[in-house]
């Protein structure tokens, strides 16, 4: 199983009540379960089925993904800055492998 790596982009600073865009990217083949290999056998499904974004431990955005999501999934969403803290992003695949990333946000 290839090692997954994640990249996130969060503005480091925001004003209170400012709505910021959070951009994330994770490397994953997102094997759909319908593709055949060279010997004609179906490659078993293995996709990231859940992406979770939490801020200071509280879930703020979640996505359930199905096989139609592209490989190396990109996901962006918005967040209203209220207080300084840290985001934790978690990607979980069918085999239970978890990838996490963190990003700090300073609210002035």
């Amino acid at each position: 199983m290839a090692k997954t790596s994640a990249r996130v982009r969060v503005p480091p600073k925001a004003k209170k009540d400012e709505i910021i865009e959070v951009k994330t990217l994770v490397s994953h083949e997102m094997e759909s379960g319908v593709r055949k290999d060279s010997s004609g056998k179906i490659v078993p499904r293995n996709i990231i089925n859940r992406f979770t974004a939490a801020f200071n431990g509280k879930v703020v955005f979640e996505a359930e993904w199905f096989p139609s999501v592209s490989a190396n999934p990109y996901q962006s969403f918005f967040f209203k800055a209220q207080e300084s803290g840290e985001f934790t992003f978690t990607w979980k695949d069918d085999q239970g492998q978890e990838t996490t990333a963190k990003a700090k946000l300073e609210v002035a």
Binding site: I19, F55, K58, V59, V60, F61, E62, A63, E64, F77, F78, F79, K80, Q82
Partner: peptide, 8 residues
Amino acid sequence: YHFTPACG
């Protein structure tokens, strides 16, 4: 997607 008011 599951949004929360925290998304803004």
